[in-house]
């Protein structure tokens, strides 16, 4: 029996093309399900933090199917393109925003020993580079809508990129120095003795703050500030195109939380005493906790102003990040 299954495994599953296919299916599948889970958790968490119930009807049990219902609704919605808009750019912008969000999952390791799509040797670099492409889509969406609110939102989004990208990169650079590799599984493996959040606590905080800005999540949701500029670059979008933007936002929460947990929280490395819990559960748990914090902040904070974010980034975060790199370098060389 075992022999037969092993034979089947070698014959079919071990075939490179099948693995190739499985990888793609897994990444796309993850991209489509993880945001749903985070989105549902956000609905319910916010609801309970705000003394209300949240979705309760769809799927009978505590509205678990609410986001699926939303997805079905979105795809049935009429697709409206404003007459004044630049139609081609307007149409492809949601795609430009969404495809990079899928690609980030490509390098995220979800456990030891091959629980990843590919172990790129420039993994971190790839993840950070690809995730900032979404901003181009955002600018395209905002500009092509020919709407003043969208334009202001897009300009704010670009300003946000300028503010968060450097702290994000510099905080990552310090981790890379410590681990001596750019590969995400490599960085996770290097934390077998202690998690990098201990020596790189400043870097961890910078990374989380910068990630929030990249995701346009409160308190840095100025590009989509609904009480000021309606919904920023998404104002004119309807139906499935709008759904793409939302999907990207929640996928971004998952992917950046996962990357942060690999960079700073040891990825699949367990805490002492509870080592029997398998690696993938560890990384999912850490991602979940970070995602929850992102959601929690939304219930707590008002939003900043764009110039205050710039000021914070250039006057505090970048000098701290540079100092962090310096200290990490000295630490590495001396010890």
């Amino acid at each position: 029996m075992i022999a037969v299954s092993q034979q089947i495994f070698e014959q079919y599953i071990n075939n490179v093309w099948i693995i190739f296919g499985l990888k793609i299916v897994a990444v796309v599948g993850l991209f489509l399900t993880a945001p749903m889970v985070v989105g549902y958790v956000e609905h319910k968490t916010l609801a309970h933090m705000q003394a209300r119930l949240g979705p309760m009807e769809a799927g009978k049990f505590h509205g678990w199917a609410q986001l699926i219902a939303d997805g079905v609704k979105f795809i049935q919605k009429e697709d409206i393109t404003p007459t004044a808009a630049d139609k081609f750019v307007f149409t492809i912008a949601p795609g430009i925003v969404m495809v990079p969000a899928i690609l980030v999952f490509f390098v995220v390791p979800f456990g030891p020993n091959g629980w990843w799509a590919e172990n790129l040797d420039v993994g971190v670099f790839f993840a950070l580079a690809i995730s900032s492409i979404s901003v181009i889509g955002m600018l395209a969406a905002g500009w092509s809508s020919a709407n003043k609110f969208s334009l202001i939102g897009a300009v704010r989004g670009a300003a946000q990129l300028i503010a968060y990208e450097l702290p994000l990169l510099l905080a990552t650079a310090a981790v890379v120095m410590q681990a001596g590799t750019l590969s995400l599984p490599g960085i996770a493996a290097a934390q077998s003795h202690y998690w990098y959040v201990l020596p790189q606590f400043a870097g961890f905080m910078l990374f989380i703050i910068a990630s929030l800005a990249e995701l346009s999540r409160p308190p840095f949701d100025m590009p989509i500030a609904d009480s000021e500029i309606i919904f920023g670059h998404m104002t004119e979008y309807t139906g499935v195109k709008f759904a793409f933007f939302l999907l990207t936002e929640y996928a971004g929460i998952v992917s950046l939380s996962a990357i942060a947990s690999v960079l700073f929280l040891g990825g699949w490395q367990p805490l002492p005493l509870i080592k029997f819990v398998p690696g993938p559960l560890w990384i999912l748990g850490k991602t979940g906790i970070l995602s929850f914090i992102v959601i929690w902040l939304r219930a707590t904070y008002p939003r900043l102003r764009e110039d205050q974010l710039q000021k914070m980034a250039w006057k505090y975060m970048i000098p701290i990040a540079l100092l962090d790199i310096l200290l990490t370098g000295i630490f590495k060389v001396v010890f």
Partner: peptide
């Protein structure tokens, strides 16, 4: 006022 500054929770508390 909280809602306008992006803090949505006070609104729900206020209505409670």
């Amino acid at each position: 006022f909280g809602l306008e500054l992006g803090a949505m929770t006070p609104m729900f508390y206020a209505f409670r």
